[in-house]
Amino acid sequence: MIKIKPVSPPEGKRYPISERIYLVEIFKGMGLTLKHLVRNLVTYPTKNRTVVTIQYPDETREYSPRFRGRHRLKKNPDGSLRCVACKLCAENCPSHCIFIEPAAYPDPSMGNYPKRYEINITRCIFCGFCVEACPKGAIEMTEVSEMAGSTRAVFDKDFLLADGEEPAR
């Protein structure tokens, strides 16, 4: 709990002498920083560290289950694509970064499938509207947040399907 101290003295009064000569307050402040330092140093080698740093590549933050990371296309249990190329996701995408080229299955009863399904990830704002829009639950967002690369990648169907067999979580 952070205690808040009024910054200006009460109306018509001066600060108490202990605050006007700075020194007492300075030593108090230095005591506070020393307390933090010692506490952090002592607990650093132990399990329950008090430093709040997450040393990123070694440790990662726990993401919430609702975290919106990289997209993933899902498959049916029989291995076929869930997506029916209805383009609702592309319509709803505020940054127009989904490109879908539909194609029909040879068997007319099976309807359409996306021949190409590409997400221009450099334009994506990770709003999740595509997931909301999908009537088939065919697209979802994973916890993967490490997408840095040295090229302007467009995630194509194979890539989006790569870990698509089972839901990631």
């Binding site: 920083t33 933090h36 330092l37 952090n40 140093l41 650093y44 008090t50 430093v51 709040v52 740093t53």
Partner: peptide, 10 residues
């Protein structure tokens, strides 16, 4: 490093 540990960083 001192600054780090004082500020609850590493």
């Amino acid at each position: 490093r001192g600054a780090g540990f004082i500020q609850d960083r590493v």
